[in-house]
Design a protein around this nucleic acid. Sequence first.
DNA 1: GTCTATAGGCTGATAGAC
DNA 2: GTCTATCAGCCTATAGAC
Lengths: 198, 198
Amino acid sequence: MNSATRDIIIRTAMDLFWVKGYQSTSISDILSRSQVHSGSLYHFFPGKQDVLVAVLETYRDEIDVGLLDHAWQGVDDPIDKIFALLAGYRMHLLTTDFQYGCPIGGLALEIHEPDPRVRELLDQNFRNWVDAVESCLIEAKDRFPGDLDRRALAEFILTIMEGAIMQAKTARDIAVFDRNVSVLRNHMDLLQRQAERA
Amino acid sequence: MNSATRDIIIRTAMDLFWVKGYQSTSISDILSRSQVHSGSLYHFFPGKQDVLVAVLETYRDEIDVGLLDHAWQGVDDPIDKIFALLAGYRMHLLTTDFQYGCPIGGLALEIHEPDPRVRELLDQNFRNWVDAVESCLIEAKDRFPGDLDRRALAEFILTIMEGAIMQAKTARDIAVFDRNVSVLRNHMDLLQRQAERA
DNA sequence: GTCTATAGGCTGATAGAC
DNA sequence: GTCTATCAGCCTATAGAC
């Protein structure tokens, strides 16, 4: 099932779907960039959508090595980890002139009538991301009010990341991203002060 | 420049772009649903993208009559207005089985290399929405800390709306939308209590 | 598993009569 | 301004030799 060619196809598609989206990326785009021929691709994948499924499975299975390990390198404090994660997306926006946002969020809003497998995989990817943030909040639970809904706050942080990227890409201005993160930071500070008073 | 046929094309495209997105909506889709013939469409619009431009201009010019007046009917309190706006999107999600999210946000993330006119219009639409929310915050300014960055908070609320829709659509579950709004509500409450103490 | 060639369908857009 | 007919190009996917 696995092979070097199959992997090259997936890696190439990951990148193209991230920048151009799913629909705007043609099979030819994947073939020409990966130097793979049509017959090989269709040997490994029944169709284009199956490439997308493989891409989403890869994101899901590699969230640690592909995202978290890198973003959290040298960061120990759990709250700092959350903002380091956001800073990673910020950097992608800046270094690619707002071309690379969130690969999952982009696909989630682009594909309007997703196949059940695709929708489920998008959701799994979101949930994994939320899990990671929630684990940080649990690690820092002594600093927050005891009745804090940590799951809801973790989802909220994903929401802010996605919405901030959407606005920054559209405005082509990182300032709106930063202001969003500032408001989140203020919210987290308020929660922590609330906990200190109690 | 204006005509009944032109308007029918725009209204049809508004709806189709909202549900299916821009790329997945073909000119044929617009023609068959609007009962307009190819020659008429190309008489009014040089190409498909010009239909999109007209759609975005219409959203921009009709934010009051098309969105705010309806959402704020019978709502006077400025903070209630903000949550009434969010509730409007919630209702759209629920009554359309998560098909209708935010028409602007969907297009903003779908179109990866937007024509300058398109990008500018998407941005204008976002800014108009933020303006509306900011005006609510200004109206309620006595209830918030004096140094509150109202523009940033208004952008933050747009961010939450967009991110909450993205997650709710993907999970096909309104609960995640509601939890996001709850966290926002909690943040607004914390700000107001902060102001009361000062 | 790899490579070339091409089928078959859909798309945006156009021509030209009325 | 409206309508019909149609083009040319791109797209996904397949056939079949190697």
